[in-house]
Design a protein around this nucleic acid. Structure first.
Lengths: 203, 203
DNA sequence: GTCTATAGACTGATAGAC
DNA sequence: GTCTATCAGTCTATAGAC
């Protein structure tokens, strides 16, 4: 009795889409089954419970979020300037493609921060150990700037992610349509790195 | 038979707390009744349905979010520099006090952006009509900067709000404790305005 | 206005046929 | 492995007593 990998996978991917879109509370296991094109009973056959399936989706979502950073931040071959360019671009494009991910994570983690500690393998405080952090600190010391590397890092992530998270709100107050908003995001791919480099006096 | 205003108010405030913390999907009307110290039937007596109560909470939450901006942005007596200082401070302090509000709004609006149009009185595109926007545009023209006022405004809000929204995530990856994080936010009250003024070459 | 009790619908999970 | 049918529990909403 070998488990059908493709069905198991199909259910998990459907679950990821539905959970990320609606959140745990509004998601119905029937919706996931329908989205996966299978029967409700099969979901429990493979994953035992809604909660267990959610935990798995949560873990993979957190790892996906980190994956946008890890490789760029620990590359010893690139300059800080190159890392800023690549990091902003990767974040904006990644979040645009999967715009439900960040809000899903932040919401569910606000309700239950324990998820971060339960299953995820990323070590606490891992940011400070990255190569990029050393580069930022070197630049801060060289220019005698009055803020820490964490502030800079948060600025990078804020300015890249926030416009995606606040999309409906921003569209409303600025009266941008779909096309204008896409242009707006496109512009930020070059603008955000410029502002960030200026903060570090890299230009 | 005059409606008991204090009970009606008590229920609405309890609903606001519970909805903002758990979201619509995870909120149980029993939780709201318990939080308000009344019986479940009384909730329906005053507000007819969970959905109707939610709509009211949603409307007031959106208006609360805007209230942080309106007065500052339309003040004709203050300079742009003063508006940046006041705006950042007000946003950071407001969101810290009520840290569930922004995530609640963004999540629910992602699920159903229609809420913005349904009941809220704030006009679409209202940002562009504020006095602060005219001041930003004047400065952009004067210094011949290559971005729009909307980008600047989004940067202000991003850097102020995002650290609150991403709090659990940030605490984890940086290994900050409660005290360190509070200091971190405190520092941003002065740092964020400095970065923003630098973007507009106001210093 | 406020309560208790309960109707009626929905949801997660399982039993059992194939 | 996959399905249909159904159970047991939970949830919103209301009926009816006071």
């Amino acid at each position: 009795m070998v488990r059908d990998v493709s069905t198991e996978q199909k259910i998990k991917e459907a679950a990821k889409r539905v959970f990320q879109k609606k959140g745990f509370g509004l998601t119905r296991t029937r919706d996931i089954a329908k989205e996966a094109g299978i029967n409700l009973a099969l979901l429990n056959y493979y994953y035992r419970s809604k909660e267990n399936l959610f935990e798995i989706v949560m873990q993979e979502s957190i790892e996906e979020m980190f994956s946008y950073l890890e490789h760029i931040m620990n590359n010893k071959q690139t300059t800080l300037t190159e890392k800023i360019d690549a990091g902003v671009l990767r974040y904006i494009e990644g979040m645009s493609k999967n715009s439900n991910l960040p809000l899903f994570l932040f919401s569910e983690l606000q309700a239950n921060p324990q998820h971060l500690f339960d299953r995820v393998k990323i070590p606490e405080g891992f940011i400070q150990d990255t190569y990029m952090f050393k580069q930022i600190n070197a630049q801060i010391n060289k220019e005698k700037l009055n803020f820490t590397a964490i502030h800079f890092f948060i600025n990078l992530v804020s300015m890249s992610i926030f416009p995606i998270i606040g999309q409906p709100f921003i569209k409303y107050v600025t009266k941008m349509d779909e096309k204008s908003f896409a242009d707006f995001i496109e512009q930020r791919k070059t603008l955000v790195p410029i502002w960030l480099k200026s903060m570090l006096k890299l230009v």
